[in-house]
Amino acid sequence: MAVTIKDVAKRAGVSPATVSRVIADNPRITGKTKEKVREVMKIMGYYPNFQARNLVAKKSQTLGIIMENSATLAFQNPFFPEVLRGISTRAHGSQYGLYLSTGATQEEIYREVVEMAQGKRVDGIILLYSKIGDPVMEYLCQSGIPFAVVGRPFKDPCAVSYVDNDNINNAKEVVEYLVGLGHRHIAFVGGAADFVVSLDRLEGYKLALKQHGIPFDAAYTVNQEFMHGNEREAIRRLMALDIPPTAIVTHDDMVAYEVIGYLEDLEISVPEDVSIIGFNNHAISRHLKPPLSTVDISIYDLGLHAAELVLEKITDESVPPKQVVVPSRLIERGSCRRL
């Protein structure tokens, strides 16, 4: 005979209503009571019928995860599995599942978000990027569904809860580190210009140059729009300048890997001929030859806090929007040298 919620309540010495609240992870139930009831559920082999409970509660117990492009491309970047690890850890603690967007274009992703919200497929949404004029964020503001963003909104279309690093200061610190090594000719290879993280890191780069009396030279900056799929040629032109850079700040570690490959094709050595530094501190970065200097942006914590923000809003809609800044740290490795 199947174990019932009443059986669990009797053995745990609580009411069936308390067991239901424990299953729902109700914040009014103490941690001690939750632990006791969950232990009894485990011993008795009781598994809640979440589908039935969700129908009654009109909840899906699911969070929608929206990536900046198709899942196939996103998972080629180690950032996304790591931020999802943080999200899933917090979601699991509240017995929430994840629903990943699978659209391959911005239009498909937008339609999928509308279907998620209007079809009640998810109780809340986490946007894993922030870009200028994003129709997805504008829709989420109008929809009323709880959501949080990994990344600082460019201009808040509404009151938005978000988690981010201090990308301006991070980039500023990176340039100051290179200046401290004796570099004056420092290039910046950025990401897409409509993503806020790209704008913030470029801003930090410019601020550091100004602070150290180094004139900003647009010829030393390259972004995705400038490259137009001709990354190799863009790097060749950069290194062919009358005064080529002695150091390159890249948008993230993935870009750094590509740049290092193009430099090798040009028979330019890192760090002997040019120093290079990235962001994100992917696991593989320490194993490169030379190991890549980078900024650890605590990707796991970004995901963890994003999930906390949206789950808090799901539990209590009156909670005001919050902004969480996750600390970062510069990691010095072998890809940068002192002049």
Rank of each mutant, 00 (worst) to 15 (best):
M1S: 13
A2L: 08
V3Y: 05
V8W: 11
A9I: 03
A12T: 06
G13M: 03
A17S: 13
A17I: 07
A17G: 08
A17W: 03
D25R: 14
D25M: 09
D25G: 04
I29G: 07
V37Q: 03
I43Q: 15
G45V: 06
P48G: 11
R53D: 05
L55V: 04
L63A: 09
I65Y: 13
M67R: 03
S70D: 08
Q76T: 11
P78A: 05
F80P: 01
E82S: 10
G86M: 04
I87C: 00
I87T: 00
T89A: 12
A91L: 04
H92A: 11
G93I: 01
S94P: 02
L98Q: 03
T102V: 06
V114D: 09
V114P: 01
G124K: 08
G133P: 10
D134K: 11
D134Y: 10
M137A: 05
Q142L: 02
F147A: 10
F147R: 10
V149A: 06
V149C: 07
G151T: 09
G151A: 09
R152D: 04
K155F: 07
N167G: 13
H185S: 12
I186K: 04
A192F: 14
A193N: 10
A193D: 09
F195G: 13
V197W: 01
L199F: 06
D200I: 03
D200G: 02
L202H: 12
A208N: 12
A208F: 14
K210E: 15
Q211W: 00
I214M: 11
A218W: 11
A219K: 12
A219Q: 11
V222I: 15
Q224M: 05
R232Q: 15
R237D: 15
L241T: 07
D242T: 12
P245R: 04
V249L: 15
V249W: 05
D252T: 10
M254V: 05
M254R: 02
V259H: 13
I260S: 05
E264N: 12
L266H: 07
L266E: 13
S269H: 12
V274I: 05
I277C: 03
G278N: 14
N280Y: 00
A283D: 15
R286F: 00
L292P: 05
I297N: 05
I299H: 00
Y300D: 01
L304V: 01
E308R: 05
V310Y: 03
K313T: 10
K313N: 10
I314K: 01
I314W: 00
T315A: 15
D316E: 00
K322H: 08
V326H: 01
S328H: 15
I331A: 03
R333Y: 13
S335W: 09
R337P: 04
